[in-house]
């Protein structure tokens, strides 16, 4: 399973997005607002879940701003940190 696929499952399960399947999540769509429709409280939960499942910590806002654009950017961020 790729990081992006695992991420989608985590987002659906941990953020209780029951009405959506992993296949329906566009890798390039924005995670917050108009895209996947997540909000600021989801961002807090996502930070926690990424640390729990991948052991990767999003330490500051700038990292978060870059990583949280889409599934692709978040997956890339996680892989980069795990490889370091």
């Amino acid at each position: 399973m790729t990081t992006n696929e695992k991420l989608k499952i985590i987002i659906i399960q941990e953020l209780n997005l029951e009405e959506i399947t992993p296949e329906e999540i566009d890798d390039e769509a924005p995670l917050f607002g108009e895209g996947l429709g997540l909000d600021s409280l989801d961002a807090v939960e996502l930070v926690v879940q990424i640390q729990k499942h991948f052991g990767v910590e999003i330490k500051d806002m700038e990292e978060g701003r870059l990583a949280f654009r889409s599934i692709n950017t978040l997956g890339g961020f996680i892989e980069e940190r795990r490889a370091a």
Binding site: A43, K59, D60
Partner: peptide, 10 residues
Amino acid sequence: YLGGTLEMLQ
């Protein structure tokens, strides 16, 4: 950005 939540968490 995101209502300041990431800054607060940080």
